[in-house]
Design a protein around this nucleic acid. Structure first.
Lengths: 167, 167
DNA sequence: AAAATAATACTTGACATCAAACGGTTTTAT
DNA sequence: ATAAAACCGTTTGATGTCAAGTATTATTTT
């Protein structure tokens, strides 16, 4: 089904690149929506899942700022998401000896348990959604998207979140 | 640059389909971020731009619910975005004779002027981002993404927003 | 040692979004 | 004609997000 039909537009796209961009965004939204369905069964939002998942597969200690970099989200966002996760007992903040500014974010055993329960349906969903694509097609798609991001980064100046704050 | 480097992950992806999905989402986010840069210069958010853009290229009258369908957003969201746009004088709600439930949403001359100023840099940004792709490559990409959405829709049951409301 | 600078986390205010519920309105069924 | 159902816009409450600003702590410079 084309985007034109899907969104009930009157006219076909005149610009194939515009159509491509909207396809990327729309597919991303639909993927997030599907993921949210899975997460909701575990009383987690997408943002909370991302943090938990990232922590689960990371060896060594992580600060809030590092977590923000990995998930490409501002520090402010991390703060509020961690508040929620900490309240549920899935994560805790640990003080760091020798540097009282930073916290290490640590996943609790309970948090680990949740990730382990969540992972199978999560991966299953991904494989179902991409069941029509061969490995080679996936690699090709990935390559194209990487190139688009590369050009975007050139246009945007590195894409630094958390700006200079002032001057 | 691979996602693994981009996000600072310690291990390469074991699952190529997982990597593909994250590439789609990440690219979409970056596209939105770039778009937001452009919109901000015109004091518009992405949501506000979407509404304005949709109205500009639509002949005939549009209700709020129709607008919601096109932008794949709930009626509640449309309400609040229209409130903002109306306050800026870029859009107005018109009562409809013969049906007191609905409003027609109409772009004002001022709103049209904004879209016309905004469109060139918007299209330019898209073409720069996809400068590396041939038309044929774009069509191929679109086809793949459409197939992914098709499967997602099968998994999710149509994806109807604005649920039954009761009973 | 003191002052300036940078880094880290938090706070606040503004948005967009959804889910759920509500009050009118219109359409459909009985 | 009346009752039931569907529809439309809105409101409320919760999330997540960003931008801008503050407080605290580390580091560097002087």
């Amino acid at each position: 089904m084309s985007l034109q039909e899907e969104l009930g537009l009157q006219n076909p796209f005149i610009d194939i690149r515009h159509e491509a961009v909207l396809n990327i965004v729309r597919t991303s939204n639909l993927l997030s929506l599907r993921a949210a369905q899975i997460f909701r069964g575990f009383d987690l939002t997408e943002a909370q899942f991302n943090v938990l998942f990232s922590l689960h597969f990371t060896k060594g200690n992580v600060t809030q700022a590092e977590l923000g970099k990995r998930l490409v989200v501002t520090r402010a966002s991390i703060t509020s998401v961690l508040d929620k996760l900490e309240a549920k007992g899935l994560v805790r903040r640990a003080k760091v000896a020798g540097n009282r500014r930073i916290h290490h974010v640590i996943i609790t055993p309970e948090g680990t348990r949740v990730v382990q329960q969540l992972e199978p349906p999560y991966r299953m969903g991904i494989h179902l959604a991409l069941a029509g694509m061969e490995d080679e097609g996936c690699r090709h798609l990935i390559g194209e998207l990487e190139e688009i991001r590369e050009r975007l980064r050139q246009m945007m100046g590195n894409g630094e979140l958390d700006e200079p704050e002032d001057s």
